[in-house]
């Protein structure tokens, strides 16, 4: 479903006199249908950088990121923007750590929009969004409110609902349970395992050992790259 070959990423900081920060090099990661691979390693090892590169949010500097999109392998590292957008819409989902709030849009619509842009009728989209939010313990009285004023945990659950609702064949999860209590962690573990049972390929970053043990089929260790001179 997803495979990287010799993926490398170095940040060049022009505002710091062109300082080079090598973060990833020679990454070969492969994830199959129904498999959950958890990226492991200390802070600064490049877990989030790898995740963002897989999504095309960071530009890979070398190597390939092959994604199976409608049966065809597409290299996210080289694809044109509109192809990357199509892959994100139909194949590759991403749950970031933080919700980027769109002003004025209600919680229900934020989640339902994910289905509407994929051609689901508005009523059905709103019904399914409402049901998923309830499952994540976001009570119905909050559905009509924009999530800007929600707590960190509530925002993360809105973000999870938004990420899971479209049932992408590949999902990237960046700390999906970081600010959740035990009950909600259990809901997320169940959702991840259901997605795996459907055949979803998952790459996750997850510091919580309990959640990691419950979802991971395999760990993919990363270690900090040596500083270049």
């Amino acid at each position: 479903m997803l495979r990287t070959e010799g993926l490398a990423k170095t940040f060049t900081l022009h505002l710091r006199g062109g300082m080079q920060l090598p973060v990833l090099s020679g990454i070969d990661l492969a994830v199959s249908t129904g498999e959950c691979v958890v990226l492991s390693g200390p802070s600064g090892a490049g877990k989030s950088t790898l995740m963002r590169s897989l999504y095309g949010n960071y530009r890979a500097e070398a190597g390939h990121i092959w994604i199976r999109h409608h049966g065809e392998m597409i290299d996210i590292a080289a694809a044109e923007p509109r192809i990357v957008l199509a892959v994100r819409r139909e194949t590759l989902g991403y749950v970031s750590q933080f919700l980027r709030v769109v002003p004025r849009v209600s919680t229900l619509d934020i989640v339902a929009d994910e289905l509407i842009t994929r051609g689901v009728a508005q009523d059905e989209a709103r019904d399914r969004a409402g049901a998923l939010l309830l499952r994540l313990n976001i009570p119905r009285r909050l559905h009509s409110i924009p999530p800007a004023t929600f707590s960190g945990g509530e925002q993360q659950r809105v973000n999870l609902a938004r990420g899971f609702i479209a049932a992408h064949p590949i999902l990237l999860l960046d700390e999906p349970t970081a600010s959740l209590d035990a009950d909600n962690r259990a809901v997320v573990i169940a959702m991840v395992n259901e997605a795996k049972a459907r055949g979803t390929a998952i790459v996750a970053i997850c510091h919580d050992a309990e959640v990691r043990d419950a979802i991971a089929d395999r760990l993919f260790p990363l270690s900090p790259t040596q500083e270049a001179a």
Binding site: F11, T12, L13, H14, L15, R52, G56, N57, Y58, R59, P81, V84, L85
Partner: peptide, 18 residues
């Protein structure tokens, strides 16, 4: 030039970084 989130989150050119 590029994807909006890529250019804003991982700007390559010195001027974009600024």
């Amino acid at each position: 030039t590029g994807l909006t989130d890529q250019v804003l989150d991982d700007p390559q050119h010195a001027y974009t970084q600024l």
